[in-house]
């Protein structure tokens, strides 16, 4: 009996440890974005884009930008596939804006996708901004297992660093309106 009880306690602990991921709420507008870790990109152009150097891994707080747009996607998700050209358009729009192009960065995190799968997505849609693999779903868990595509916009500067100014599931709709909205919300404009 005692053994069963001990076993149960151990299981209960395992459950609570496990569920602390699943039950973790998705960070909302106004919250601080968790300082997640990603594997370092090997592409020099991407390192330059993000203001990073070195190998191994990095924390998103190290990305040099005033505003970070982070998309959680999956190559297997039809909505994310439909969204890809829209996000590409957003990326192009930002690049054309002299006042914004050095302040805003976009990254994508492929929930459950291995590097091979992320590459397929990148090649299919000719995506120019950095995409990262989250094969073990660790990032996905730390943002409350959101449905995809999910967009976070994180204000990296100011009094309260890494404050979320946008946290929503689904399409960003019109890229120009989206860009106007987030630059206004963050005080970049």
């Amino acid at each position: 009996m005692k053994i069963i009880k001990i076993g149960l306690i151990v299981l209960a602990f395992m459950f609570f440890a496990g569920s602390s991921h699943a039950a973790e709420l998705t960070p909302a507008k106004g919250d601080t974005f968790p300082d997640i870790t990603l594997s370092m990109t090997e592409k020099a152009s991407e390192k330059e884009y993000l203001g990073l150097s070195g190998k191994g891994s990095f924390r998103i707080s190290q990305i040099k930008a005033e505003l970070l747009i982070l998309e959680i996607f999956s190559m297997y998700c039809p909505y994310c596939q439909k969204e890809a050209p829209i996000v590409n358009e957003l990326y192009q729009l930002i690049n054309k804006r002299e006042d914004l192009k050095n302040k805003i960065r976009i990254i994508g995190v492929g929930a459950g996708n291995n590097p091979f799968e992320v590459d397929i997505f990148r090649n299919q849609y000719n995506i120019q901004f950095p995409l990262f693999s989250d094969e073990s779903y660790s990032v996905h868990k730390s943002v409350g297992e959101v449905r995809t595509p999910y967009f976070f916009v994180i204000k990296k500067t100011g009094d309260k660093k890494n404050t979320i100014i946008y946290s929503k599931v689904g399409s960003i709709q019109d890229p120009k309106q989206f860009l106007d909205m987030i630059s206004e919300e963050s005080g970049l404009k």
Partner: peptide, 29 residues
């Protein structure tokens, strides 16, 4: 009956653990 009780608690915990792993990466679509 006590043994049974523990069994059900255990089964419940396992079921919860399982169900929490199903929704991974679900598409909004």
């Amino acid at each position: 009956s006590k043994n049974h009780f523990y069994f059900y608690v255990l089964a419940g915990i396992l079921a919860l653990l399982y169900s929490s792993t199903i929704a991974y990466g679900a598409s909004e679509q």
